[in-house]
Design a protein around this nucleic acid. Structure first.
Length: 151
DNA sequence: GCCAACGTTGGC
DNA sequence: GCCAACGTTGGC
């Protein structure tokens, strides 16, 4: 089993929005970055756990945990000209982008802010706090995952 | 294949 | 809203 951190803008889709989907999972689509896509396609698997992170907001923070409930599948929103995620360059014969499903697992009782993560020497190697970490899907070690959830 | 211009992300 | 740090595009 692997561990991941996924970013979402709470104005677009927050941890509460994910919780409101229960008992259903929610398609995690719209990833339009190749490095993130490669993680989704090749390494994210059913049963993996995800730190849910709020970005581009007042207090950027890890706010909850989600579980991956599908392996990667073609992201159909890339073919929908009405979708904000429409990508005219993605060929239906050779889809460029993938999505996975995730399901709400828990909210952290206390959110762990980016400032806290940066200040914690135990998390100095986290991808999130490393230079220029704009990846919207990024790997987290088991140690980092358990440590953050326990905080 | 290089690289300049442009676009995006995301913290501050 | 600013801007640093990327990523992508497209001419050559």
């Amino acid at each position: 089993m692997k561990y991941w951190l996924m970013k979402s803008e709470p104005d677009e889709f927050s941890i509460d929005d994910l919780a409101a989907c229960l008992p259903q999972s929610e398609p995690w689509q719209g990833i339009r970055n190749y490095q993130a896509r490669n993680f989704l396609r090749d390494e994210v698997k059913t049963g993996d756990l995800v730190l849910f992170y709020h970005s581009s907001c007042k207090v950027p923070a890890v706010v909850g945990v989600a579980e991956v409930t599908s392996d990667a599948y073609n992201d159909l929103s890339a073919f929908d000209s009405q979708s904000a995620y429409f990508d005219p360059k993605s060929d239906k014969q050779k889809p460029r982008w993938v999505a996975v499903d995730i399901r709400f697992n828990q909210k952290l009782t206390r959110i762990i802010t980016l400032a806290q993560l940066k200040a914690d020497p135990k998390l100095a190697d986290m991808v999130l706090v490393s230079k220029g970490a704009r990846l919207s899907v990024q790997p987290v070690t088991e140690e980092e995952f358990n440590y953050i959830v326990a905080l």
